[in-house]
């Protein structure tokens, strides 16, 4: 009887793993099989032509790349500094707990709400207009709570004994954070960043009113330019236009490129993370 439950349990877990893997695999299969045919050098390097039915999607690739990079450059230093303050400096009090809880709740706010916020604050109030800057800032604010909580988790996971060892050698609080705590927490922080990259690159709603445009003739010229972005381009291809068949194909191509782009940007973070991890073990 005991053996039977043991086997049943194992089989159930294995089955769940297979099911998850099946969905993941089939997403990859559909995207690759439908999108691969449109991928070509021209597709990657040219601007769209003939009402989105020919040419390439280069401006959208560049736009998504810049938006992602910009939002991370904005959110990572800010979120990390915030997490360092909350974990290492703030007194452990009731108020700090409330701040933590609020930040976690903020992570659950729907992305379209961030889009509206970006429209009101960056586009209108700061008068950045519909631009790459507004989009990157909106996306950055959207993932700020995720970066803060991932960084907090990573900082809290650093053994207290490392901090004690450092302080006992006559290091200051800040030296301890900079030279011992942060390097130790870096893999965990980067995991947060990697997840953030995936989310930022793929979101449509926050850039809908703040940065994205359906078509640009060339590449963005400054941070105040409107940009094309892959997720928005997919949305546009699937909902507008007059050649649904061709457009659908291109949409799948865009999806494939989006996946590849996320992987590319994440891999930089993954490489840094692996280099740091080699000290463990």
């Amino acid at each position: 009887m005991k053996k039977l439950t043991e086997k049943l349990g194992f089989a159930l877990l294995f089955l769940c793993m297979i099911i998850s893997l099946f969905f993941l695999g089939s997403i990859l299969y559909f995207i690759v099989s439908r999108g691969f045919s449109v991928i070509s050098w021209e597709f990657l390097t040219q601007v769209p032509k003939k009402a989105m039915t020919a040419g390439g999607v280069a401006p959208a690739i560049v736009g998504t790349f810049y938006l992602t990079l910009g939002s991370i450059l904005f959110a990572l230093p800010l979120g990390l500094a915030c997490a360092i303050y909350l974990c290492e400096y703030s007194p452990k009090s009731y108020v700090v707990n409330i701040i933590r809880m609020s930040i976690n709740n903020l992570a659950g706010v729907p992305s379209v709400v961030f889009g509206l916020f970006g429209l009101a604050v960056f586009v209108k109030f700061f008068n950045f207009g519909v631009s790459m800057l507004s989009g990157a800032l909106t996306l950055g604010i959207m993932i700020l709570p995720n970066i803060i909580s991932a960084s907090q988790e990573a900082l809290l996971a650093v053994p207290q004994s490392y901090r004690e060892a450092s302080l006992a050698l006559g290091a200051t609080h800040w030296q301890t954070i900079k030279k011992v705590v942060l390097p130790t927490a870096m893999p965990g922080i980067l995991t947060g960043v990697i997840l953030g990259i995936g989310r930022v690159a793929g979101e449509t709603a926050p850039i809908l009113f703040t940065a994205a445009t359906f078509y640009t003739r060339g590449f963005p010229k400054s941070v105040f330019s409107e940009v094309m972005a892959l997720p928005y381009h997919i949305y546009a291809l699937m909902t507008e236009g007059t050649h649904p068949e061709k457009q659908t194909q291109i949409a799948y191509g865009c999806a494939l490129i989006l996946l590849a782009l996320v992987l590319l940007i994440s891999s930089v973070a993954i490489i840094i993370r692996q280099r740091q991890r080699k000290y463990y073990g």
Binding site: P159, S161, Y162, E164, A165, S166, A168, L169, G170, A171, T172, Q175, K179, V180, P183, T184, Y279, Y280
Partner: peptide, 22 residues
């Protein structure tokens, strides 16, 4: 300390650390 607590750094860096911070 009670439990050995070397930093997750190299052997060399563990010892040079105290000098550098000072």
């Amino acid at each position: 300390f009670q439990k050995p607590n070397p930093f997750p750094k190299t052997i060399f860096e563990n010892i040079s650390y105290g000098l550098e911070v000072n």
